[in-house]
């Protein structure tokens, strides 16, 4: 019952978010600030993780395929597939659920408990549009983050594979181009858009409807991470079933 209520309040929130709009000039500023906080502010950690995880994927693939009948180009191929299909879109999104998601929940949640949201409402401002809409728009740029992650992941794989002596540059790049299916990229970016929407809205919902004080803000942030990552994993499963397994 309470789950149904939660789902109901989530969709009601979405409806009100796209309800009466905040003054244009103010909204523009809010969007730029969110892009800075949520997107630009995440690039460093995403670049760091992607490069090194890409390297580890290449090394592990190389160590597991020392059988001479398997072509050396497999290392490049496997690295590309793991990064493009899963690591960049799904796992970076989960890492973002921890970083961006809990930031969104705690910032909206603390506005709730200190009556800043009431202050907006009293002034006749649609607080959901003011707070959540700019986050949704900012996260439309999330695919760029994922594209960067894909690029740096593969680069990391190449550097670790080639300079670690596991493969040659030619073998690795041959592998990268093997069996390339553009639909895989389409699939990866469809996922990314859905995850971006979850990342913007679920943590907002957690923060907006929370009750209590500072302690509860902390709890809501943790909850927000759990719910956002569970939802990302579940939708990942569903989208993969629908798009790839036919």
């Amino acid at each position: 019952m309470s789950y149904l209520e939660d789902i109901g309040s989530y969709f009601l929130m979405l409806k009100r978010t796209f309800g009466s709009f905040t003054k244009r000039s103010v909204l523009k500023e809010l969007i730029l600030k969110e892009i800075d906080d949520l997107i630009i502010g995440s690039l460093g950690i995403v670049a760091f993780i992607s490069f090194f995880v890409g390297g580890v994927i290449a090394i592990q693939t190389a160590l597991n395929v020392d059988n001479p009948i398997i072509p050396k180009s497999l290392i490049g191929f496997a690295t590309r597939q793991s990064i493009v299909l899963e690591f960049a879109p799904t796992f970076i999104s989960i890492i973002m659920a921890g970083k961006v998601g809990s930031f969104i929940t705690s910032s909206i949640g603390s506005m709730r408990v200190t009556e800043q949201i009431d202050a907006l409402e009293v002034m006749g401002i649609n607080s959901l549009n003011y707070l959540v809409f700019p986050k949704i728009v900012a996260l439309l740029f999330f695919p760029f983050v994922i594209a960067l992650s894909m690029f740096l992941g593969i680069l990391g794989g190449l550097v670790a594979g080639v300079y670690g002596g596991f493969t040659t540059l030619t073998d690795f790049t041959t592998g990268l181009q093997d069996d390339f299916d553009t639909f895989h990229l389409v699939y990866a970016f469809i996922k990314t858009f859905v995850f971006a929407f979850i990342l913007a809205t679920v943590p907002s919902w957690q923060g907006f409807y929370m009750k209590g004080g500072a302690l509860e803000v902390g709890k809501a942030s943790t909850n927000s991470f759990v719910w956002t990552s569970v939802l990302i994993i579940l939708t990942n499963f569903i989208i993969t079933q629908l798009l790839l397994s036919s």
Binding site: S107, E115, Q116, D118, A119, V122, M123, G124
Partner: peptide
């Protein structure tokens, strides 16, 4: 009319409710 009324209302909240950003 309600929106217009709200522009004529000032509210002082218990904790101040200043926007901390």
């Amino acid at each position: 009319q309600q929106r217009h009324l709200r522009e004529e209302i000032g509210m002082l909240f218990q904790g101040g409710a200043l926007f901390d950003s």
